[in-house]
């Protein structure tokens, strides 16, 4: 893919991504926020494909946009929120201070990025980021963390059932 085409694809995914993430924080309705977040995750998966991380892009759509956001939507529907619960927010002054602090954090990170200078991406091989290559790393170099992750998921399942169930 040519340089200009790749840059165009980057912006095509970046602009909706930032808009959707802003939609998560400006809205008061949790359902609107959840749907914006689904859109943001899809755009982010496109950015991952641009970074030649195909497996992670697929996992992003399957796990994040699929499983986690459906869980969020289920909980939102389950709780049947009323208007007075939705309408509450921080006072405007505190929100302003929060925004100021976040802009400060962004400025610090951005300065650090500028200090590293513009780095061009190197050419990578044909199998970079494919299921086969990442799977080989996961099952050799990162075998112990991989197995620990399965244990973590088991603990999370049991914990979620114990916490959410009314009577065990």
């Amino acid at each position: 893919m040519g340089d200009r085409a790749e840059m165009a694809v980057f912006w095509i995914f970046t602009v909706p991504l930032i808009a959707a993430s802003l939609g998560v924080v400006v809205t008061k309705n949790p359902i609107t926020a959840a749907m914006s977040l689904v859109g943001a995750f899809f755009c982010l998966a496109g950015i991952y494909v641009l970074l030649t991380a195909h497996l992670v892009a697929f996992l992003q759509i399957l796990v994040y946009a699929g499983a986690i956001m459906v869980l969020f939507l289920f909980v939102i529907m389950l709780l049947a929120l009323q208007e007075e619960i939705l309408g509450v927010s921080r006072i405007k002054v505190m929100q302003g201070f929060g925004a100021l602090g976040c802009v400060g954090v962004f400025a610090v990170i951005y300065r650090a990025i500028l200090a590293t200078g513009p780095r061009m991406m190197p050419q990578v091989g044909e199998d970079y980021g494919t299921v086969k290559a990442v799977g080989r790393i996961l099952f050799t170099q990162y075998l112990l963390p991989f197995e620990a992750t399965s244990l973590l998921l088991l603990v999370a399942i049991v914990g979620a059932v114990v916490v959410a169930k009314q009577r065990i």
Binding site: L17, I18, S21, L22, V24, V25, T27, K28, P30, A33, A34, F72, V75, I76, I85, L86, V88, S89, R90, M94, Q95, G98, A99, G101, C102, V103, V105, F106, I109
Partner: peptide, 18 residues
């Protein structure tokens, strides 16, 4: 940018789900 937006949501929003 994404991290800053998320941080702003965490410090300014009071709805647990958001």
């Amino acid at each position: 940018i994404l991290f800053s937006i998320g941080l702003f949501g965490v410090v300014s929003k009071r709805n647990i789900l958001i």
